[in-house]
Amino acid sequence: MTVRLDGTVIRLEGACHLEDAEALTVLLQPREARVVDLSACRSLHGAVVQALLAHRPLLAGEPVSPFLRDLLMPALAVERHAPASNL
């Protein structure tokens, strides 16, 4: 299994596919502070990335994939700010 709960840490391992997005979302639903460890992750389906973007969990570990490490991790680390309103 590529999405595994280990105590309070959610581990993403290997190639995470479309069906893993639902499992990840279920594990991220409780508002408990959970950490997602990406150190054993090789690739992420776009739906898994969307789940991470939507829930913004704390991330741990550095993926071995240069794409995930150099491009995706910085995008996931950016804080979201509410747009300014002129109302």
Rank of each mutant, 00 (worst) to 15 (best):
N86Q: 06
V64M: 08
G7L: 04
R31W: 04
L76T: 05
L44D: 15
R69Y: 14
L5V: 04
C41E: 08
L28H: 08
V78W: 01
S65Y: 03
A47R: 12
R80N: 11
G46S: 15
R69C: 13
C41G: 09
N86E: 03
E19D: 15
A84S: 12
L59V: 09
L59K: 08
R11E: 12
S43T: 12
G14F: 00
L27Y: 06
D70T: 11
A40K: 08
D20L: 11
M73T: 12
S43L: 05
A21N: 05
I10D: 09
Q50L: 08
G7T: 00
G14E: 02
R69L: 11
N86V: 11
A21D: 06
A15Y: 05
C41T: 15
G14R: 01
S39I: 10
R42I: 04
S43C: 10
T8F: 09
S65H: 04
G46Y: 01
A51L: 10
L76V: 10
P66N: 01
L27A: 00
L71T: 06
V26M: 05
R56S: 09
R31T: 06
L27N: 02
L72T: 03
P66T: 06
P66H: 04
V48E: 09
A84Q: 14
N86T: 07
E22T: 12
A82D: 00
E79M: 07
A77W: 07
D37A: 05
P57D: 01
A60L: 13
S65D: 14
V36I: 04
V48P: 07
C41Y: 15
T2N: 12
V78Y: 01
E19A: 14
L27W: 02
R56C: 03
E79H: 05
F67P: 00
A60T: 13
A47M: 08
